[in-house]
Computed example of a mutant assay.
Amino acid sequence: MTDATHPTRSHGRFPYSALPDRPVFDWPGGKRLAVYVALNVECFSFGEGDGAQLAPKGGEPDVLNASWREWGNRVGVWRLRDLADELDLPLAVLLNSAAYHDCPGLADAFRARGDEIVGHGRTNAERQGTLGEAAERALIREASDLYRHHEGRLPDGWLGPWISESAVTPDLLVEEGYGYLLDWMHDDQPVWMRTRGGQPILSVPYSHEINDIPAVTTRLVSGPDFARMVSDQFHEMLAASRQAPLVMSIALHPYLVGQPHRLRPLREALREIAAHRDEIWLTRPGEIAQAFGAIAPFEG
């Protein structure tokens, strides 16, 4: 609701807070910059539904784009796993629950590395924000039951497919048991969000800029240009973190940066970041959420 004094509509989840006015703290190990790599493992429906496009869709079945996306789970994701092993990088695997059925053994390989599994809906062929509350709750519950079955526990965090939210998504997530979400990119530090039941949920930064989908499929940047974006973001945030602790995320999709011509420059950008591991906290979003909750608990 708006009025003459407040002409813009507010979501009511958190108040305005200027970064320079906040208390300064350190991440674990006395570090000021937390960096995490988010690997999106996504499944799509053949012949229907949403999906990123390499070229304009020419009707269904859209073999060109469907097979390009499937290449990511058959080939690209394994090259990215090998790169993470090579550089000793921890990963957050943002996993569609459909991957347990569609890609047998894929989740097992990352679980064996000790990587964090983050909830990412059922499939990226759909958007939860378009659903009514009951249907959205059912989507979250169906995915969550599969995570509980395969992982032995509910993931700590969630990213909606296509970063799609309804007006009640944070409420539904906290009611299901999630502790943090990645959909909002309004800050470079975690931010507590209010929900309707009084139990907060933590928003952990997840970059919409250092994210290969908008960079490659919308802005049409090259592999070297995307790698340069990653490197420039890192060095600027490392310098800025001297004044305030920050979170940098790198969002990757196997069908995009798993492609050899994009993987090669990305390798060098990630190698450069890994070479600074003594200065930064290379981590996962669940560990960021846990650390921030201890440092700055929700105060209502």
Rank of each mutant, 00 (worst) to 15 (best):
D3Q: 05
A4W: 07
T5V: 01
T5D: 14
H6A: 10
T8K: 10
F14L: 11
S17I: 03
W27E: 06
G29R: 08
R32V: 04
L33K: 04
A38K: 01
V41C: 13
E42V: 04
F44I: 00
L54I: 13
L54A: 15
K57R: 15
G58C: 08
P61F: 12
R69A: 00
R74D: 10
R79C: 02
D85V: 07
D88M: 01
L95W: 01
D102H: 13
D108P: 03
R111Y: 01
R113C: 07
R113S: 00
G114N: 10
T123F: 02
G132R: 08
E136D: 06
E142F: 03
L146K: 08
H149Y: 10
G160C: 11
T169F: 04
T169H: 02
D171E: 08
G179K: 09
L182D: 07
W184V: 12
N211Y: 05
D212I: 08
P214R: 09
L220E: 15
D225Y: 06
L238H: 15
A239E: 15
P245C: 06
I250Q: 05
I250D: 03
H253W: 10
P260L: 11
P260G: 10
L266F: 10
I273E: 00
H276D: 13
R277A: 10
R277N: 03
W281D: 04
R284N: 02
R284Q: 15
E287P: 00
A289R: 10
A289E: 03
Q290L: 14
F292I: 07
A296M: 12
E299C: 08
E299S: 14
G300K: 02
G300N: 00
